[in-house]
Write a protein that binds this DNA or RNA. Structure first.
Lengths: 124, 124
DNA sequence: GCAATGCTACTACAAATGTAGAACCCGTCA
DNA sequence: TGACGGGTTCTACATTTGTAGTAGCATTGC
């Protein structure tokens, strides 16, 4: 399951809470995303076709919930990226993240935090 | 600069060594990629339009070399992914990589290696 | 009973992507 | 000198993606 950029927006909104109506999803989209309501419906229909979400009806109003989990979507995306750009392996990807000099300080901080959390987790 | 999946194939081949002709690039593509020669030429032309590669001529034969570096391409790809799928931050992305239980043993190994290399690097 | 609201389904359409065919040009070898 | 091999450019076309318009069907407030 490959999500497009626009689909990520919708799924991100849906993962915030479900079941949800198209209207609710619309309200949750970031301000930078200014789609017509029908655009959102179209995306949801396509996502339902791809079986990333399930659509049910309450009356004639569509209710949506994710089938694809955020975790799986993330996993798939990372796998694709690793395949395309890092010879299919996570090691080099990780290595790149750690070594790349052009990360901002903030980003380096975040990496360190993640590493530390991992260490903590490992000790329990 | 956003590369599509097919474009990654071409760029990966080009990054293996340049300047290179379309024929050389074709020969370097993995067996799984079985494109007509003209397909490769089309991709190269499009990549030149996007200024990801530069095309020069020796006689009437096109010679290609990357303008976009592998490092930058990787950086861009990771940034996009972080934006779409991890609230724009590398920390959560990294955290996910470390914590995700569904990584294979091999993948976990690779992560560990990457971590260890980082430690070594830090000590020098 | 009818108009405004709000939802739905269906259709549309441009741009990007994947993939390639056709036709043309040039050097070379018989 | 003419056919072959290999390169080139241009054109083509289906599919996917981004984005939305339109028209039709309930609900409701007068």
């Amino acid at each position: 399951m490959r999500l497009t950029e626009a689909e990520w927006q919708i799924m991100n909104a849906l993962w915030e809470g479900w079941p949800a109506t198209a209207r609710e999803i619309a309200d949750r989209l970031p301000d930078s995303v200014n789609w017509a309501y029908t655009t959102i419906k179209t995306m949801l229909t396509r996502l339902a076709e791809k079986e990333a979400v399930e659509e049910t009806k309450r009356g004639n109003v569509g209710i949506y919930e994710p089938i694809l989990t955020r975790q799986n979507a993330r996993r798939n995306a990372l796998k694709s990226l690793a395949n395309q750009a890092f010879d299919g392996a996570f090691g080099p990807l990780m290595h790149f993240l750690l070594e790349d000099q052009n990360l901002s300080d903030r980003q380096r901080e975040q990496l360190l935090e993640a590493l530390q959390q991992r260490e903590k987790g490992g000790e329990q």
